[in-house]
């Protein structure tokens, strides 16, 4: 289908065109590129919020409450919900919408489910493209809900301006499990299911973790992790902890106030510019990596490269080593990359 035509229809408010553009960007890197280059000037208007946390911590239910709050305030909201792709079948069950069943006026809320399609990091390859398309379609905010995460899926942090990390009480040593990875990416901690036993204890544990991080920073300033914390401290933002009950909506207004406070902080402190730089740096890295990976796959495709099996046999026979062989292939790829 004609991308220019779809872009034009999207600009006129045709939501099916928006939807088709997302499918095209998702299915094909070349299409994603064509769409992104056409739309990029129209983006940068929407505020991007990331919502991440363990499976079952209540991400979708909380996102539903945030949408509902924003819709009441007349905001237009785009949502991208990522769920995992099966490594066995390549299929996916996308169930986040089940928590988002409220009716909204036409055109106010656009929710898109997305499978991770083998991408690690908590979001899909096309998530950033989808955020851009929704942004260009004229929404005021885009919320990105990651797959249920463990420790290291932090891609949403570079994609979003404000990242919420959701935790729920009663998940045992979760605070330990989280603390090295996504616990550092949080701009706001959300203790969801705050009506459950242990919520206040969890809040206390996060508070003391934050206290400890600041103390350590004074003692071991050179350590990588601690430097990041010091940056945060310097930038004047200690992540607040919001208690919510996503089922009833309790605490969601206060959470929204915290998000707005973080946004003001980013704008007023100049952090926004730094965030944008790191966001687009990462995006360019991803694009280049992806492009390079395609060339690597192409160069090592046994069905396409007739001399490859013989080359691999030479390695197996110890006539050449893998590093030397990869140097040769790398040079070929570099030539192909230029064209």
């Amino acid at each position: 289908m004609d991308i220019d035509g779809l872009v034009e229809r999207m600009r006129q408010g045709d939501r099916r065109a928006t939807s088709r553009l997302i499918s095209l960007a998702e299915g094909d890197i070349a299409a994603a590129r064509a769409i992104s280059t056409r739309l990029f000037k129209d983006t940068g208007k929407a505020y991007i919020i990331g919502v991440t946390g363990a499976p079952g911590s209540g991400k979708s239910t909380l996102v539903n409450q945030i949408i509902s709050l924003l819709a009441k305030r007349g905001k237009r909201v785009g949502v991208v919900c990522v769920d995992p792709t099966s490594p066995f079948s390549g299929g996916a069950l996308l169930g986040d919408r089940i928590r988002m069943k409220e009716d909204y006026p036409p055109g106010q809320v656009f929710i898109r489910s997305m499978a991770s399609r083998g991408k690690l990091g908590g979001v899909a390859r096309a998530t950033k493209d989808t955020v851009s398309i929704l942004d260009a379609s004229g929404v005021d905010l885009v919320i990105v809900e990651t797959v249920g995460v463990g420790q290291n899926e932090i891609d949403v942090y570079t994609l979003a301006y404000t990242t919420l990390v959701l935790l729920a009480p009663g998940m045992g040593d979760e605070i330990q499990a989280f603390k090295a990875g996504i616990m550092e990416t949080s701009d706001i901690y959300v203790v969801n299911k705050a009506d459950h036993d242990g919520a206040d204890q969890l809040v206390g544990e996060i508070e003391s973790m934050l206290d400890l991080a600041e103390t350590i920073e004074l003692e071991h300033g050179e350590d990588h992790v601690v430097v990041e914390v010091r940056k945060q401290a310097k930038a004047g933002w200690r992540p607040p902890i919001c208690k919510t009950n996503a089922l009833t909506g309790d605490g969601v207004e206060a959470l929204w106030a915290a998000i707005e406070a973080h946004r003001s902080h980013l704008v007023n402190s100049g952090e926004m510019a730094r965030k944008n730089r790191s966001k687009y740096r990462q995006e360019i890295i991803d694009i280049l990596r992806e492009k390079f990976a395609l060339h690597v796959e192409e160069a090592l495709d046994l069905t396409k490269n007739g001399d490859l099996p013989a080359l691999l046999d030479e390695v197996a026979a110890r006539k050449q080593d893998p590093y030397t062989v990869s140097d040769g292939i790398g040079k070929k790829i570099a030539d192909a990359f230029k064209s």
Binding site: S86, S89, G91, A92, L93, L94, R97, I98, K101, S113
Partner: peptide, 11 residues
């Protein structure tokens, strides 16, 4: 899903 499709269940 097991047949490799992406399935959105509405509830």
């Amino acid at each position: 899903r097991d047949a490799g499709m992406e399935v959105i269940y509405t509830g």
